[in-house]
Write a protein that binds this DNA or RNA. Structure first.
Length: 574
RNA sequence: CGGGGUGUAGCUCAGCCUGGUAGAGCACUUGCUUCGGGAGCAAGGGGCCGGAGGUUCAAAUCCUCUCACCCCGACCA
């Protein structure tokens, strides 16, 4: 492609709206333009990248035996009412009405549509297992779209749904998808980690997220430094502390802490390590208010807490008024001692001795408090987020490694759905014994447009984007110096352009009447991985100049060897 | 949804406090020069100052409403 014919809308100045690197660079490189909050147009350059990611996804899904379909973006409310999600989904679901005032939604996902299709089309276990995928625009009306296409409302997604006669078959396909996803992200050229994830409201037995590791990621992930344990912090388990609780050494005593509310304030005021304090959170329970007790330096994990029998779902904190009624104090002075309600303590909190906690009296805390002596032994559970330095729970708890917390961008998610949708929508087949069985399902998503942003987030420098060969909008940039001045350069460049194109390279031929500096800056910004420069000086010697996007310096190569050298650079031959 | 901020040329922004002929840089057009890392000079084109209403002799500027966009928050314990 000739650069003079391409809408190369690069901009030098950073648009004010962009915050993350990928967002800035995608705008500056002329890949995307915003139309409304979380809604973007893909310009030719950006679309080329998107299409390359799509192509890899498509190839690998096909290789894994999945079949491509294309389902409607707009879906009738009836299906969502049948699955029960019309009322559950909330404002994230973009609802519309047609001219007959019938309800529809713009699909944020397609479980209902595919389940409806398959219950009509598949009748026998002989047709199973079957896996269907599509690559299509989704719409989710996010509370706060941000970071460009990273968290957009309209976004391109590959979603796949598998159907099975039994759980074993589902597990088999799930494993295939796990491997397929790993292949896809490896081919795209991303540093990623599969991470055990919460199955959320959907239930089911297994779920993995695929995260691109990047500091700007919105998710926190716990990784082990010794084994391959990796879990979303929402799910990561904390091993109970080693050893036994120490014996009390001092008598409990009240201590005045006027105006000290937060753990930070109280521990600084009393000159005590936050690790030796307790915080007490009052939440709604299934039978009245429940107290959740954590060590001062730990955070509540709402997902873990919600799963406890005593705790109401969804997790909800009580109002300050209720705090007053139950604990007779402000929220900043609650403590488990003397509370006449269910107390659930995190494992680390239950292990403390001689700790500090609220006295249930404004401006007062207690010190040298001890479970069993000063208050009853609590019910114990894992209800906290893991933190860096926690022992790894991997290898049945025998890993001996330590967890670290990293940020990740979720680019893929696979899970075993089970029969939630097939049951609600009566998607059944006859098995080999002629019995009607509800089909277990799996579902597998990849945020295709998000992958593009994640790739930039992970691969860029001060000059711009650095694409991997696999998803670059063009493989090679051909830059003639003095194209509009020198007949020799023009002739040689045209010739080389034809040679390279003929050899199958995807070439961006910069035939614009621009100064070299402008061309170099543009090509670096848009991240073309390989660059060839032709000039009078080199031509006289019979050489062109080659520079990889990550290379410090360019080097001369003989014109006759350009094709071979490029094949090598792209690792198409050894 | 709550709080804060911003809307002025295609982009980044000044002007607003203290009302009086709408600006700069970049981008764009033309010419000349320049030509290996975002050139120089000259001449140009381009604005319902987000929208509506109000105050005033006079509003980008003051007031009210409204819309859009951006940021933060939704865990004091």
């Amino acid at each position: 492609m000739r650069a003079s014919r391409l809408l190369l809308s690069t901009v030098r100045e950073t648009p004010a709206e962009a915050e993350t690197i990928s967002h800035k660079l995608m705008l500056r490189a002329g890949m995307i333009r915003k139309l409304a909050a979380g809604i973007y147009t893909w310009l030719p350059l950006g679309l080329r990248v998107l299409r390359r990611v799509e192509a890899i996804v498509r190839e690998e899904m096909d290789r894994a035996g999945a079949q491509e379909v294309l389902m409607p973006a707009v879906q009738p409310a009836e299906l969502w009412q049948e699955s029960g999600r019309w009322d559950v989904y909330g404002p994230e679901l973009l609802r519309l009405q047609d001219r007959h005032r019938r309800d529809f939604c713009f699909g944020p996902t397609h479980e209902e549509v595919i389940t409806d299709l398959i219950r009509r089309e598949i009748k026998s276990y002989r047709q199973l297992p079957a896996n269907f995928y599509q690559i299509q625009m989704k719409f989710r009306d996010e509370i706060r779209p941000r970071f460009g296409v990273m968290r957009a409302r309209e976004f391109l997604m590959k979603d796949a749904y598998s159907f099975h006669v039994d759980q074993a078959s589902l597990k088999e396909t799930y494993d295939v998808m796990y491997d397929t996803y790993s292949r896809i992200f490896r081919r795209v050229g991303l540093a990623f980690r599969p991470v055990a994830a919460d199955t959320g409201a959907i239930g089911g037995s297994a779920s993995h997220e695929f995260h691109v590791l990047a500091d700007s990621g919105e998710d926190a992930i716990a990784l082990c430094n010794a084994c391959d344990y990796a879990a979303n912090v929402e799910l990561a388990t904390a091993l109970p502390p080693f050893g036994k609780r120490a014996a009390p050494t001092a008598a409990m005593e009240p201590v005045a802490t006027p105006g000290q509310h937060t753990i930070e304030e109280v521990s600084r005021f009393l000159k005590v390590d936050p690790k030796r304090t307790l915080k007490t959170l009052l939440v709604r329970g299934t039978g009245g208010v429940v107290a959740l007790v954590l060590r001062g330096d730990h955070e509540l994990n709402p997902i873990k807490a919600e799963k406890l029998a005593h705790v109401a779902k969804p997790l909800e904190f009580v109002t300050p008024g209720e705090v007053e009624a139950v604990a007779h104090c402000e929220p900043g002075s609650i403590g488990p001692a003397g509370l006449a309600i269910q107390v659930i303590a995190d494992e680390s909190a239950a292990r403390l001795a001689d700790f500090v906690c609220g006295a249930n009296k404004d401006g007062q805390h207690l010190r040298n408090v001890n479970w069993g002596r000063d208050l009853p032994e609590p019910e114990v559970a894992d209800i906290r987020n893991v933190i860096a330095g926690d022992p790894c729970p991997g290898n049945e708890g025998k890993c001996n490694g330590t967890l670290e917390i990293r940020r990740g961008i979720e680019v893929g998610h696979i899970f075993q759905l089970g029969t939630k949708y097939s049951e609600a929508m009566q998607a059944t087949v006859l098995d080999d014994a002629g019995r009607t069985v509800v089909m277990p399902m799996g579902c597998y998503g990849i945020g295709v447009s998000r992958v593009v942003a994640a790739a930039i987030e992970q691969n860029h420098d001060d000059n711009g984007i650095i694409w991997s060969d696999a998803i670059a909008p063009f493989q090679v940039a051909l830059v003639p110096i003095g194209y509009h001045k020198s007949q020799a350069v023009r002739t040689a460049a045209e010739e080389l352009y034809h040679t390279l194109t003929g050899a199958g390279f995807d070439v961006l031929f910069d035939d614009r009447n621009e100064r070299p500096g402008v061309m170099f800056a543009d090509l670096d910004l848009i991240g073309i991985p390989h660059r060839l420069v032709l000039g009078d000086k080199g031509l006289a010697k019979g050489t062109a100049e080659y520079k990889g996007r990550r290379d410090e310096k360019a080097r001369d190569i003989a014109l006759a060897n350009v094709t071979t050298e490029l094949f090598q650079a792209l690792r198409l031959i050894d």
